[in-house]
């Protein structure tokens, strides 16, 4: 059995993001001053440097911008998972997130493929967003 998977030490905005994930929400930020959409969450807007930012939940749908399938585990804790695929997903709201792809044969993964988010509890306290091919 694989050891515990890595759980990041969370600080500041990072805590908010993963707390929202635990509630089943994939969030990004919207700048109330310039309407910039921001991922990952920050203290100031990447465009105008305003601190007037709000968290917004994504619909969780997007397309694969790129991907890689690991045939050698990135960490010993992933030894039982190979091959597994990590994806960069462009969400419909215009921000990009990184996660893994499940419920998909590695040979079928393609750039541009439609995917949707799901959430998985790694531990009681820590939940991560993941993606799977869209239902349609």
């Amino acid at each position: 059995m694989a050891a515990t998977k890595p759980i990041p030490t969370l600080r500041g905005e990072e805590k908010v993001y993963f707390e929202e994930a635990k509630n089943g929400r994939l969030v990004y930020q919207l700048c109330r001053d310039c309407a910039q959409r921001i991922f990952y969450p920050r203290t100031v807007c990447t465009n105008c440097m305003s601190e007037n930012l709000e968290y917004v939940a994504s619909a969780g749908k997007g397309t694969i911008y790129s991907f890689t399938t690991l045939h050698v585990p990135g960490h010993p804790e992933f030894a039982d998972d190979v091959p597994y695929t990590v994806v960069l997903v462009d969400l419909e709201e215009g921000v990009r997130v990184l996660a893994d792809l499940v419920d998909c044969d590695p040979d079928d993964v393609k750039v541009g493929m439609s995917v949707e988010v799901l959430f998985e509890a790694v531990t009681e306290d820590f939940t991560v967003p993941r993606f799977r091919p869209s239902a349609q």
């Binding site: 990041p8 969370l10 991907f67 996660a99």
Partner: peptide, 21 residues
Amino acid sequence: PYEEPYGLQHPISSFGMIAHR
């Protein structure tokens, strides 16, 4: 923190994504 939970191998997995794109 937004990358760490997913088991990327540094740095080759990043270059894998670059190559696929």
